[in-house]
C-alpha cells in the first residue's frame, strides 16, 4: 500500500471515528454526573434525520448540524423529565428514548429518503493541506472532525480544571453528600443530560451530512450503543474516548476494505466485527480490573431528596 493510499485509509478511519467521539464524549459528561442515558442511539438517529432534513431544505450544512443538536436536546429533555424529574429507572427510560427515536426518525426522514446533497466540505489551507502524506490528514478534514477534537479538549478542561466540573464529578460520585452540601444535584444532572443529547444529535447529523451525505432509515446501525460501550472502554476519561473511537473506526474501515477485497469471508460476518469487537473490548476491560472501579459511583442511581 502506498503512503498516499495509507493517508486516504487513515482519513476514512478518522471520519468513521468522529461520530463515535462526539456521541461518546457527550455521554461521558452525562455519566460523570451519574446519569446513564441509554437513549444515545435514538437521539443520534433523530439527529441524523432532522439534520439532513434541515440541511437539505436550507442548503446549509451548519443549519443541519444545529438542527441535529436541537433534536438531541429536545429528546434528551424527555429523558431528563423521566429519569431525573420523576426518578424513574434510567435503563428503562433510556430504552424508551431509543425506541421513540428510531420511530420518530423514520417519520421525519420519510420525505427525504433517496435525496442526496454535497457532503460537508473539507478544510483546505493552502500549502499546509498539500503537505505530502500528512497534509490532508491533519489539515484537510471536515469541520466536524476539528469540532470533535475541540469538544474532547473542552470537556477534559471542564471536568478537571473548573469548579463546575468538580461539582459535576462530585454529584456523580455521591449524590447524597452533594445534596447535603447544597449542590444542585438534579439541575446539574439535567444540564449534563442535555449536553449529552446535544452531542448525540450532532454525531447523528455528522452521519447524514458528512459521513454519507444522505438519509436512510436505521443508518446509525448501533453506533449509539457502541458510543456507550466506548465510555466504559475509556474508563470515563475524555482522551481515551478518542483512542477507543479510532480503534473502532479502524476496525470498521478494515472490515469494509476486506469486504471490497473479497477475501472469501462472508460479508455479513465481516459486518459483525465492530459489534464483536465491542464485546471483546468490554471483556478485556473487565478482566484484571476490579469491578467497575473507574465508574462514577452513583452512575445510574435515581436520586430522590430525602428528609
Amino acid at each position: 500500500m502506498s503512503a498516499d493510499m495509507l493517508e486516504l485509509v487513515l482519513m476514512t478511519v478518522v471520519t468513521a471515528a468522529t461520530p463515535l467521539i462526539i456521541a461518546a464524549i457527550g455521554e461521558l459528561v452525562a455519566e460523570r454526573s451519574g446519569v446513564l442515558n441509554l437513549g444515545v442511539e435514538g437521539m443520534m438517529i433523530v439527529g441524523a434525520s432532522v439534520g439532513f432534513a434541515a440541511a437539505f431544505s436550507s442548503g446549509s450544512t451548519l443549519i443541519g448540524a444545529l438542527a441535529g443538536i436541537a433534536a438531541g436536546v429536545v429528546l434528551s429533555s424527555l429523558f431528563a423529565l423521566l429519569a431525573i424529574g420523576l426518578a424513574i429507572n434510567q435503563v428503562a427510560s433510556g430504552l424508551s428514548l431509543t425506541i421513540l427515536g428510531v420511530g420518530l426518525s423514520g417519520l421525519m426522514g420519510a420525505p427525504f429518503v433517496g435525496q442526496k446533497r454535497e457532503a460537508a466540505s473539507r478544510l483546505a489551507i493552502p500549502y499546509l493541506s498539500d503537505i505530502p502524506y500528512v497534509g490532508r490528514l491533519v489539515f484537510g478534514e471536515d469541520m466536524f472532525v476539528y469540532a470533535a477534537i475541540a469538544l474532547v479538549a473542552a470537556c477534559w478542561w471542564f471536568l478537571n480544571r473548573t469548579r463546575a466540573g468538580l461539582t459535576l464529578r462530585a454529584i456523580g460520585d455521591n449524590h447524597h453528600s452533594a445534596h447535603a452540601l447544597g449542590l444542585p444535584v438534579r439541575r446539574v444532572r439535567v444540564l449534563s443530560t442535555l449536553f449529552g443529547g446535544a452531542c448525540a444529535g450532532l454525531a447523528g447529523a455528522y452521519l447524514s451530512l458528512a459521513y454519507t451525505p444522505f438519509w436512510s432509515p436505521g443508518m446509525t446501525a448501533g453506533r449509539g450503543w457502541i458510543a456507550l460501550a466506548l465510555v466504559v472502554f475509556a474508563s470515563w476519561k475524555p482522551w481515551r474516548v478518542v483512542l477507543g473511537a479510532l480503534l473502532f473506526g479502524g476496525a470498521t474501515v478494515l472490515q469494509l476494505h476486506a469486504q471490497a477485497a473479497s477475501i472469501g469471508v462472508p460479508g455479513q460476518l465481516l459486518s459483525a466485527t465492530p459489534y464483536l469487537a465491542t464485546i471483546v473490548a468490554l471483556m478485556i476491560l473487565s478482566i484484571g480490573a476490579r469491578r467497575n472501579a473507574a465508574a462514577p459511583a452513583a452512575l445510574g442511581q435515581p436520586f430522590v431528596a430525602t428528609r
Binding site: 447524597h176 452533594a178 449542590l183 462514577p296
Partner: peptide
C-alpha cells in the same frame, strides 16, 4: 459537621473541601 459524612470517596481531600466553599 455531618454525622454520616457528606464526603466524596473518589475525590481528593482538597477537592472535597473546595466543594463546600463559597463560589
Amino acid at each position: 459537621v455531618f454525622q454520616h459524612f457528606s464526603l466524596f470517596d473518589n475525590l481528593t481531600v482538597a477537592e472535597n473541601i473546595a466543594l463546600a466553599l463559597p463560589k
